[in-house]
Design a binder for these strands. Structure first.
Lengths: 209, 209
DNA sequence: CCGCGGCTAGTCAAACTTGATTAATTGGAC
DNA sequence: GTCCAATTAATCAAGTTTGACTAGCCGCGG
């Protein structure tokens, strides 16, 4: 599964109850359509799929409020809540490429208590370091052959560079969190999160930009 | 399209003529199953799809050589050759996340003349710098509001970091190419590329690792 | 007052991906 | 000799993603 389930669960969760179009708008507000596969089709599909799997509860709502076809509102079930945190932790922990999952995880990181977030990120750094070592081990010529891989060695260099860069960024975030940045779970009210109802989306595809 | 078409076209091209299993083995030899969606199903699907689209020519071959069901060999058509270079240039040029495409592009970079490869990479650096500037512009509070984005600003920091890191790596590769590293297109025979026929794949999933 | 462009909300077919499974043949154990 | 396991090669069904499309309603220009 890509980042879509995490994004959709997180968006619904922040509203308490939301219909597809609201989710779609929030994701656009966060810029998610630029760094993830948050297309309408994927969002509605994820909503239906997760409702079928018992992660979301669906409510049919009268087709009135503002025009358009009848809509369905969703809200997280207990299982959905669990799955949300499972996906969130995984997104922050896993060092695999998938930039969209990490980005989504960062976007929801304040839903975790500070201590847990820091712990996850530290484990992320450790995983990155181990992965780096493994890449080097795997792609280094076993004995005398110095340059046997030719330009293929560039792939290794690229991965090593990515691992180092990712670890450096993660360490920076850890420091900021340890320094008390942001309002985490259980520390009071959050500030900016979703588009307040009724406010037009300032980032809704306006052509230029 | 993900990296799969580029990988498959490149693999078939290096053999001149190849069947699905050969392609699959090559990709595994390059470690592609670890950083791309190079699963058997995707590979065979891509071969058939591209044959249908006229990028590959299919030849049915007697089911003899080494056991297994009858196999089909493929070879690039003129259109396939064109598409290969189009995808290769795009992979090196585009700065979008998609790590697998860039990795595949690096793997085939020696199919380009040295001057063109360097030019593409320089344009890549320029694109990354422009993208970085745009991210900063887009996510910086317009006027007095200093920290309006809260932790969402972390997403911006992450992107900026990625852009800088990607640009640094690209500059390194440019330097190596300008220094004469590797044998590029039109500069003589290449060294390591595909698994020679008959040699067992030393990286074929051996369970542990 | 009527049509048309735009917004709200969602659906659908076609393409792609995944993981398991099938199928043909060879080689070794017994 | 023959039966089991491994290897070679490819297919399939189920699920996901994509991009284009449908459809209701509002407001405004003519």
């Amino acid at each position: 599964m890509s980042a879509i389930r995490l994004l959709v669960l997180g968006a619904v969760r922040q509203h308490g109850r939301a219909h597809g179009y609201q989710v779609r708008n929030d994701l656009e507000f966060w810029g998610a359509h630029e760094w993830s596969n948050a297309k309408p089709g994927s969002i509605y599909h994820a909503l239906k799929q997760m409702a079928k799997q018992g992660l979301l509860r669906a409510h049919d709502v009268a087709p009135s409020t503002a025009g358009g076809p009848p809509r369905t509102e969703y809200e997280l079930t207990g299982a959905g809540e669990e799955e949300y945190f499972r996906l969130l932790r995984e997104a922050l922990l896993r060092h695999d490429q998938k930039i969209d999952e990490l980005t989504a995880g960062v976007g929801f990181i304040v839903d975790l208590p500070r201590a847990e977030a820091i712990d996850l990120l530290k484990r992320r750094v450790a995983a990155l370091e181990e992965w780096r070592a493994e890449v080097v081990r795997h792609w280094t010529p076993p004995d005398g052959t110095p340059d046997a891989w030719g330009h293929i060695g560039e792939i290794m260099k690229f991965w090593v560079h990515s691992a180092d860069s990712g670890a450096a960024w993660t360490r920076g975030l850890i420091e900021r969190l340890e320094g008390g940045a942001y309002v985490m779970a259980g520390e009071g009210e959050r500030s900016v999160e979703v588009l307040p109802e009724g406010v037009p989306n300032p980032y809704a595809a306006p052509g230029a930009d």
